[in-house]
């Protein structure tokens, strides 16, 4: 038997496969038993009700997609009252994703979702911060450190910081999140992108720009996951473009302790259970007893530190 169990700090997962925030709801129970998953991660919520962005909210690009859903939210009270109880039927740990426009708002919602039944809080610090001209908290080490300290003060639950690829300072941001009190890093969110219909000359998204997700994002978030794993001592969770077991294995080798699967579920709703089976089979075929023996096993000894932390392509 191959052991698939991993630990993200104090949170034990029976396998390293979980959904990415915003691409998963309990609706997926219509397709497979959700208790197969390592964890459940909910869509980011905000303190107040919000309606989200104008439509079209998605468009296709070659082999991937862009989205500008925004964060439509029924508010935190609705979430704690209606959604958290749904997940109590499952044994998989519940990870709740939150966000706020300001540090204050962020701290307030962090307190409010610290309720029984929640195993950890994923803090989506990739979202715009209106106190900093709409720049995402996780674009800079300084704002990352500040918001993480505030959040750390607001809850006793484990905090997973979700980073953005829209930065040139990944290793510094990762270290700032760690010093601010993050228990794990989720790497990463979507990359700001655009697509235009050449016939109508209109941007294909109602919001003009949106986030790239799917296979095209993978080399970027894999690079970030690798840099983060090299920069911090807390676990890294890889996220971006995962579709096949090779993608999962690549992130684990790069140093991720677990992975999140997003867009691939839209194309094939049974992607996650298939990846769990395929990972077990892959590890068995490669004679691994435990997935933990694979994590961080990248053979990069020759790379100088300067290469590992570079922020521009050579």
């Amino acid at each position: 038997m191959v052991d698939l169990a991993v630990k993200i700090g104090s949170v034990a997962l029976k396998n390293p496969i979980m959904p990415a925030s915003g691409t998963f709801t309990e609706d997926l129970a219509g397709v497979f038993d959700l208790d197969l998953l390592g964890a459940h991660v909910t869509k980011t919520i905000t303190p107040e009700k919000r309606i989200g962005n104008p439509t079209p909210r998605v468009c296709e690009v070659q082999g991937s997609m862009l989205n500008s859903i925004g964060i439509p939210s029924k508010g935190v009270d609705h979430f704690v009252r209606e959604i958290v109880p749904i997940y109590q039927k499952f044994s998989a740990p519940l990870i709740v994703s939150i966000s706020g426009n300001t540090m204050d708002e962020f701290a307030r919602i962090c307190e409010k979702v610290s309720v029984p039944g929640v195993a950890a809080i994923e803090v989506n610090i990739s979202c715009p911060n209106i106190e900093e001209d709409g720049k995402a908290f996780a674009m800079r080490p300084s704002t990352t450190l500040r918001v993480m300290k505030v959040l750390r003060g607001a809850t006793d639950l484990p905090l997973w910081a979700k980073l953005t690829p829209n930065t040139g300072e990944t290793p510094d941001v990762a270290r700032a999140a760690e010093s601010g009190g993050a228990d794990a890093l989720v790497v990463s969110n979507t990359l700001l992108s655009m697509a235009i219909d050449v016939k109508t000359r209109k941007p294909k998204l109602g919001n003009l720009m949106g986030g790239l997700s799917g296979p095209a994002l993978k080399p970027i978030s894999l690079r970030m996951a690798y840099q983060c794993a090299k920069s911090v001592n807390i676990p890294v969770i890889g996220c971006g473009g995962i579709e096949t077991v090779e993608d999962v294995v690549e992130y684990l080798i790069a140093g991720a302790s677990a992975v999140q699967v997003g867009t691939a579920t839209f194309v094939n709703p049974t992607t996650m259970p298939r990846l769990i089976d395929d990972l077990r089979a892959w590890l068995f075929a490669e004679k691994f007893q435990s997935v933990n023996d694979l994590i961080g096993s990248v053979r990069d000894d020759e790379a100088a530190d300067s290469v590992v932390f570079m922020e521009a392509a050579p």
């Binding site: 691409t23 709801t25 997926l28 439509t55 079209p56 998605v58 997609m65 439509p72 867009t263 839209f266």
Partner: peptide, 13 residues
Amino acid sequence: QMACGIGMCQCCV
């Protein structure tokens, strides 16, 4: 326009 088709992504509102 749809992505997931099963209620998860909120793009089809």
